Amino acid sequence: MALDGDNMARQSGVKSIRALERGLDVLLAIRASGGEGRSLNALHQHLGLSKATLLRLLQTLASRRLVWRRLADGVWLPGAAGAGAPDRVCRIAEIASPLLVELSAQVVWPSVIAIPRFDHMEIIETNGQVARFDFAALGPVGAKLSYLHTATGRAYLSACADAERDAIIARLTPPDGTAQQREQIDAIIAQTRQRGWSTRLPHHPWSDRDRQTVLRDGKNSIAVAVNGENGPIAAINITWPARRAVVEEVALRHLSSLQGIAARIGTLVVG
Rank of each mutant, 00 (worst) to 15 (best):
103 L>H: 05
95 I>T: 05
98 P>V: 07
137 A>H: 14
167 A>Y: 12
84 G>A: 08
97 S>H: 03
126 T>V: 02
89 V>N: 02
163 A>Y: 06
181 Q>V: 09
94 E>W: 06
170 A>E: 12
122 E>M: 04
101 V>Q: 15
92 I>S: 01
146 S>N: 04
143 A>R: 15
164 E>V: 14
161 A>Y: 05
87 D>K: 03
127 N>R: 02
182 R>Q: 11
163 A>D: 15
143 A>M: 15
94 E>Q: 15
173 T>M: 08
93 A>C: 08
134 D>E: 15
107 V>Y: 01
125 E>F: 08
165 R>F: 13
130 V>R: 04
130 V>S: 05
142 G>A: 09
112 V>Q: 03
115 I>H: 02
104 S>N: 11
123 I>N: 02
169 I>K: 03
133 F>H: 15
132 R>G: 15
86 P>V: 11
91 R>K: 11
159 A>K: 06
169 I>E: 05
186 D>M: 12
108 V>H: 07
176 D>Y: 08
130 V>G: 05
113 I>N: 00
97 S>P: 01
84 G>H: 13
112 V>P: 01
136 A>Y: 11
171 R>F: 08
152 T>Q: 01
182 R>I: 13
134 D>P: 15
104 S>H: 02
147 Y>S: 03
124 I>Y: 02
159 A>L: 12
111 S>F: 03
187 A>I: 10
156 Y>M: 05
86 P>C: 04
112 V>K: 02
119 D>K: 12
112 V>H: 02
126 T>I: 10
129 Q>V: 15
127 N>C: 13
154 R>T: 05
110 P>D: 06
127 N>D: 14
186 D>T: 14
137 A>R: 15
159 A>E: 03
113 I>K: 00
183 E>P: 03
